[in-house]
Simulated assay, not measured.
Amino acid sequence: MSTNLQDSPMTEHPVRTPIKRTVLMCKPEYFTVVYRINPWMNPALPTDTSLAVSQWQALYDIYIELGFDVHLIDPIDGLPDMVYAANGGFVIDNKAYGASFTYPERQPEGPAYMDWFRDNGFEVHAPREINEGEGDFLLVGDVILAGTGFRSDSNSHEELAAISGREVITLKLVNPSFYHLDTAIAVLDDTNIAYLRSAFDAASLDILEARYPDAIIATESDAAILGLNSYSDGYNVVIASRATDFERQLRERGYNPIGVDLSELLLGGGGVKCCTLELRR
């Protein structure tokens, strides 16, 4: 998948402007699948940690090439899912709302990420409610879309609203394969998203259709490889390299899709966005 955008003379779309991002990532030095807490995980299937590291490195290198400021948190032996940094919290206006994980296997990650936030000058807010960070909280302009149904408790939405001072809109996920909001919605810029209709209940679909009438509607096949689990700077959109229809749709809208292969990390139920936690000062 090329990083160059070629438009025909007849193509018309708004000019997309990239905005430098600051993100936190965690190298998958201890990645493996030894338990099952989502439909993607199967401990009976072999995993290749070295391959996971090399694929993650490719994502890291793309971010560096795009001019992102990339910070790293040290991985911890025994926490194989720590590579999915997006679940470690939600950061806005220098405030870090910490994560409180549903499953015991991941619960030690919450304090580890909060320690990193604290050590790096963020105002840390320890959670009272169960939530899994940017896995279920997505900022679109001044609004936070918030997922519930599988991992984050809806009470965490109220907690985040009080901490952030932002409007938080609850969306209910209904398909266990898309257990985090960032597997079913891709934020493209401050006003545009892409999403998978079948991941949401009827009331949530009504909200999405009303707020984002021009949204990209993802195909089931692209969503099935976590194609929506992508990360955008407003122009460049890093996506799963196999999400070919999503690539086409993005190009038609004036974005520049950049494909990356994270197939090994998909065995743990994560993709591009799962590996990427945005740090907003």
Rank of each mutant, 00 (worst) to 15 (best):
R106I: 05
F90C: 09
D69W: 00
D115L: 12
G88V: 00
Q107P: 06
S100E: 08
P104N: 11
S100W: 01
H71C: 12
M41T: 10
E123A: 13
M41P: 03
T47G: 14
A58Y: 03
F68W: 13
D77A: 13
N94F: 09
F31H: 05
F122A: 11
A99K: 05
Q55F: 02
V124T: 15
Y84T: 03
M82Q: 15
F122Y: 15
A44Y: 09
L45G: 03
Y60K: 14
Y113T: 02
L51N: 12
P39A: 07
Y63I: 03
E105M: 06
D61M: 13
L45F: 04
L66F: 09
Q55I: 01
G89I: 05
Y30D: 00
E123I: 04
T47I: 12
Y103R: 14
W116G: 01
V124G: 08
P108T: 05
S54L: 11
F117R: 06
P39W: 03
W56L: 09
E65W: 02
W40E: 04
R106F: 00
M41W: 01
F68M: 05
I76L: 07
Y63G: 14
Y30A: 02
A52D: 06
I37K: 04
I37V: 15
E109M: 06
L66D: 03
I92V: 15
G110M: 03
F122P: 05
F68G: 01
P80T: 08
I37T: 12
Y103V: 09
F90Y: 10
P43T: 06
V34W: 09
A52L: 10
V83W: 05
E65L: 10
D48K: 12
W56T: 07
P46K: 10
I73D: 00
L59Y: 09
G98N: 04
G98F: 00
T47K: 09
I92K: 13
L51I: 13
F117K: 09
A112R: 11
V124C: 08
N87W: 04
R106M: 06
A86W: 01
P111K: 07
M82F: 04
F117E: 07
L45S: 11
A96C: 14
